[in-house]
Write a protein that binds this DNA or RNA. Structure first.
Length: 355
RNA sequence: UCGGAGAUCGUCUAAUGGUAGGACACUGGGUUUUGGUCCCAGCAAUCUAGGUUCGAUCCCUAGUCUCCGAG
């Protein structure tokens, strides 16, 4: 077979997507090694960590497919690079995206290095995305496209990465799993932070960060109490315990005063932004940058599965935010700490963190 | 203290002399590999005591409480 000389390490999470990924690559003739990353194993607040189940499921898949299986223990590194980052961001009142960091630091860096060390030519994951000549392209299945989470990977990593699911629709993936009789074909999708399992973010943060209750303020008036400003994120509507007529949305917060600001007016100026200041920009093709893109019109997405909005790249307002994106239409509830990801048609070219 | 107004789900409110609808909150489910959003479902109320009436949340009386004016 044409690919028989190539060794591919496939990240096997225990879920259906990565199992089908491994299966497809094996069918294509690659020498597949199933690798399960152990990133977290701690039980928290009465919630049992699912890692043992995930590990067993991943191993079952490998055995079923008849491929080699390895366990890669990244727990310490994951804590240092992903969890610590997440906690630090929350502490200063921002809303981080740990899965973006996980892809940047773990899956497409540490995992890649570990795989290469063990003789891999390539790695693969069950992400819905496509690569072409070191470019990152949106998945064929628009509903499942996961490029939003992948914009911080490098071209070098993409050159060594396969995303077979990027060409498929999710229902096809399910069908393939069922046809092949994969042991986890009917496994429920797992959601939430990839490692935390069923525990909510609030319980997770409470384990690591002390919080105090404070005021919820609307137009200068105290309208309620919250149990810790870090738990709230811009645009959030639930969890405030405030009733009466129109829903309340969080418009901002002051970590010093420990105050959370809300509005019931959807037209409230504080809820809408006409530009985005980006910090820590990253471009997959490192020849791109603030200067080469200035004046260029791109599409930006400020959350997973959000609509694309046209924007024009401009110079930033400071060293820490070297890029400003001027939006063609205002975006609601822009959230500092979340990612703004840039596209040119089907290509994801990079992005940055919302200042 | 006097004058005026009003008391309905946890909150904001709708309604009729025939036992109450909506919204928000909350809870559960769905969508989503972050947070959040969004969608569906569920929970839940006529201040108290009398009176009129076949029947009162609605009308009358008293009480309690609240709010707005004048001190």
């Amino acid at each position: 077979m044409k690919n028989s000389s190539q060794i591919v390490f496939v990240g096997l999470s225990g879920g259906v997507d990565s199992a089908v990924t491994a299966m497809l690559l094996k069918e294509q003739g690659y020498r597949v090694v199933g690798a399960h990353m152990k990133n977290w194993s701690k039980d928290i607040g009465g919630f049992e960590c699912p890692w043992e189940d995930d590990y067993q499921e991943a191993k079952r898949v490998a055995v079923y497919l008849g491929v080699e299986f390895v366990l890669l223990d990244f727990e310490q590194h994951y804590f240092d690079k992903v969890v610590q980052y997440m906690l630090d961001e929350f502490r200063i009142g921002r809303t981080p995206n740990p899965d973006v960091m996980c892809n940047q630091e773990i899956k497409f860096k540490l995992f890649l290095e570990a795989a290469v060390d063990r003789g891999a030519d390539l790695i693969a994951t069950g992400h819905y995305a496509r690569t072409h000549d070191g470019k990152l392209l949106r998945a064929v299945d628009d509903n499942k496209d996961q490029t939003y989470f992948l914009y911080r990977v490098t071209k070098d990593a993409l050159d060594k990465t396969l995303f077979p699911l990027g060409e498929l629709e999710k229902p096809q993936v399910r069908a393939l799993a069922t046809q092949a009789g994969l042991p986890n074909a009917n496994r429920k999708e797992s959601m939430g932070i990839c490692f935390v399992g069923k525990i909510g973010i609030k319980d997770f943060l409470s384990e690591y960060i002390d919080t105090e209750s404070g005021d919820i303020v609307e137009k200068g008036q105290v309208v309620g109490r919250h149990d810790g400003a870090i738990f709230y994120t811009i645009g959030q509507r639930h969890g405030l315990g405030l009733g009466g007529g129109m829903p309340y949305y969080v418009t901002g917060k002051d970590m010093e005063k420990n105050e959370v600001y809300v509005t019931r007016d959807l037209a409230d100026q504080s809820l809408w932004s006409e530009y985005i200041d980006l910090t820590s920009p990253h471009f997959i093709d490192s020849s791109y940058g603030p200067s080469s893109l200035e004046g260029v019109t791109l599409q930006v997405r400020t959350r997973h599965r959000a609509d694309f909005v046209d924007c024009v790249v401009a110079a930033g307002s400071s060293e820490t935010s070297p890029i400003r994106l001027n939006l063609s239409s205002e975006i609601k509830a822009l959230t500092p700490g979340q990612s703004a990801v840039l596209y040119r048609a089907d290509e994801c070219i990079g992005g940055g963190i919302i200042a």
